[in-house]
Design a protein around this nucleic acid. Structure first.
Length: 669
DNA sequence: GAGCACTGC
């Protein structure tokens, strides 16, 4: 294997290949012909084939922007939208935001001259609220459609509908191999609006396959199932280290706990490696790490060190690390699912799909031939499902039902989904929206409440809370709380081993009434002190970047409300200074949106939901974790392992539930 | 007394 040594240096990583060398270049004419001829083209190609960067340029050169039309390319992630746009702007030789631009939430780098526009799929759906036929686009390319995010699934359904009214629109779907046929079939069969029956029209979609990857990957399996995949992963790392040639290792595990454990075990055991031999540098990678901590994995390992990265699924598609030659795949992934009966989300480790396993293996062969070690048998691999259950079939659909209604799609049950979600999920979403007053007795969107809720970029319960706030005189405060809760954590900086300090930092902002008021407290202190004093965030272990995002979100929500004609009074009163009544108004207001998330504390300190059927635990990050309370509402509920946790909890009065949601509680009280 | 894979408006 000595021939492998330093081979990597002789190759240029795929992403930086001159465009003429990309495998896609020789397909240029075929692609343009297909797009000209067929309304829908499914392009199959691996990461690095250049489809996201080259196809838009081919189209522009072929005259698809001639009449002022824009080529839109959607991406599932913000970083992808910006980085791909910047690269294309470089290749075209223009300033970003001129002919080539991007648009993501809070960042619009486009202008009147923009002809090639990259944007997130969620944002394009939002554009459809204003321009239902997406008439400014001559071509729309949905990139990474195989990931099957809810937004891209819904976008495909919308595009299919738009296509009927805009036959000149060209649709391109980029996908990994396995699902190309599904996309093509979806666009080729039409559903009769009146009867709901499917019928086949003249094939509307063509499939173009771009050449596959450049480097081969050897896949190895276990002969017998591993009893403990974590232990097996660690020993496999040492086997690779001692028996295989140079190259970094990427190990896929399921979560933070496992990863921290593995990193520690490897660094302890690597001390026993023979003197003078190459050493191992184990590194963790998961979303919960700060950006600085994540950056280590991109740095080259010091001389005489082999880099071993223990990562969650973040490395499967979102993050690409160069120089990986070996992949170790534990065969599991933590997946979110939503139970429509209980309304509780679960987060559980499940076996990966074949598509996932292939994607993971592919991470090994980016710069030279690689190897993938699967910690399961070949037989087990054959038993894996082809692809993950699409997100749309395992999520709380309330936000998306609301969006579809706002797009004028009244009969959401008949919406042409790529794969329809279970009816129960749809019903649960409709019930929730009805109870919030967003839908009327005929399941029609109410105006203005429902329509406004759809336009606000927060989940329905918080949207309702925001729209009730003016009548409680606490809009400024609720705006802040909405922004802070929608951050989804990341407010506090966690140092390794600094748990105690983090706890006491948090306690400084704690408020008797609960987490929502504490979040308000943190934000208001940040605004008055944190933005001016450089030390404030550092001293209080507050993440400056996250707080800056909260400021942006709050600003955006405020602009929405002002557009609705709601005045926002911005007197900067802290909850303590403004007296108890303000805090009570806030708690009452939260109840108008979160009545369905109510629980009561039991003598043992756990909570029960209203019907008494589910035991809920205050999440350790909550103020209510070790405090007494009676009735509370909470922002989020999630089942992990064998416990169900509630987060962002605030004390309320039981009578408020009946006052603000009489219909919802008339039978269960 | 103990913890959230990931993405997005």
């Amino acid at each position: 294997m000595a021939a492998d040594l330093d081979l990597g240096a002789a190759f240029i990583p795929a992403l930086h290949k001159p465009s003429a060398l990309l495998p896609i270049a020789k397909h240029r004419e075929t692609l343009l012909y297909m797009i000209e001829t067929y309304p829908v083209t499914v392009v199959v190609g691996q990461t690095g084939s250049g489809k996201s960067t080259q196809i838009p340029q081919y189209l522009e050169q072929a005259g698809w922007c001639a009449d002022g039309g824009v080529i839109g390319i959607t991406q599932p992630r913000r970083v992808a939208a910006t980085t791909v746009a910047i690269r294309v702007a470089e290749e075209v030789g223009c300033e970003i935001g001129k002919e080539v631009g991007y648009s993501i939430r809070f960042e619009d780098a486009t202008s009147a001259t923009t002809r090639i526009k990259f944007l997130t799929d969620g944002l394009l759906i939002r554009e459809a609220l204003v321009d239902p036929l997406l008439s400014r686009y001559s071509v729309i390319m949905v990139d990474e459609a195989h990931e099957r995010s809810i937004s891209s699934d819904i976008l495909l359904g919308l595009l299919k509908k738009i296509r009927k009214k805009r036959p000149e629109l060209r649709i391109i779907i980029s996908s990994a191999t396995l699902q190309a046929e599904d996309f093509a079939n979806f666009f080729s069969e039409s559903t009769d609006e009146a009867t709901g029956e499917g019928r086949q029209e003249k094939r509307a979609a063509a499939i173009v396959s771009l050449e596959g990857r450049t480097y081969p990957i050897d896949t190895l399996y276990l002969e017998a199932p591993a009893e403990d995949y974590l232990e097996k992963a660690i020993s496999t790392v040492f086997d690779i280290h001692t028996h295989e040639s140079k190259g970094d290792i990427l190990v896929f595990l399921t979560g933070r706990e496992e990863i921290d454990q593995a990193v520690q075990a490897v660094s302890e055991r690597s001390a026993q490696l023979p003197q003078g031999s190459e050493s191992i540098l184990p590194l963790p990678l998961y979303a919960g790490l700060s950006t600085e901590q994540q950056m280590y994995v991109f740095e080259e390992a010091p001389a005489n060190f082999r880099k071993v990265i223990f990562s969650t699924n973040i490395s499967e598609a979102s993050v690409t690390i160069d120089g990986i030659v070996y992949v170790v795949d534990c065969g599991f992934v933590k997946l979110r699912a939503y139970n429509p009966q209980t309304g509780i989300e679960t987060l559980t480790a499940t076996p990966v799909s074949k598509a996932s396993a292939a994607q993971r293996a592919g991470r090994a062969g980016r710069t030279k031939p690689g190897k993938c070690f699967r910690l399961y048998t070949e037989e087990a691999c054959q038993g894996l499902s082809e692809a993950n259950v699409p997100e749309i079939q395992r999520s709380n659909l309330a936000p998306f039902v609301l969006q579809l209604k706002a797009l004028g799609i009244d009969n959401v049950l008949r919406f042409d989904f790529l794969t329809p979600p279970p009816a129960e999920l749809m019903m649960r979403a409709i019930e929730l929206l009805y109870s919030l007053g967003a839908l009327d007795d005929y399941a029609k969107l109410t105006k203005p409440l429902g329509l406004r809720m759809a336009e606000l970029a927060v989940e329905p319960m918080m949207a309702k809370t925001l729209l009730s706030a003016p009548s409680f005189g606490c809009l400024s405060e609720i705006l802040t709380i909405a922004a802070m809760t929608s951050l989804g954590g990341g407010i506090w900086i966690q140092h390794d081993g600094g748990k105690k300090e983090a706890e006491s930092a948090k306690r400084k902002f704690a408020v008797e009434e609960g987490d929502h008021l504490a979040l308000l407290n943190v934000y208001q202190t940040f605004i008055t002190k944190g933005r001016k004093e450089a030390r404030f965030c550092h001293d209080n272990l507050i993440n400056f970047k996250t707080m800056t995002r909260a400021v942006s979100i709050r600003g955006q929500l405020k602009r929405y409300l002002e557009r609705f004609g709601v005045a926002v009074d911005e007197s900067l009163a802290t909850p303590s200074a403004s007296g108890a009544s303000k805090a009570e108004q806030i708690r009452r207001c939260l109840t108008t949106g979160y009545f369905a998330h109510a629980a009561r504390m039991q003598p043992d300190g756990t909570f029960r939901n209203v019907s008494g059927t589910t035991v809920l635990h205050a999440h350790p990050s909550s103020i209510m974790f070790n405090r007494k309370a009676d009735w509370v509402i909470f922002h989020e509920v999630m089942e992990t392992g064998d416990k169900t946790f509630i987060r962002d909890i605030t004390k309320i009065e039981k009578s408020w539930l009946l006052e603000y949601a009489p219909e919802f509680y008339k039978t269960s009280s």
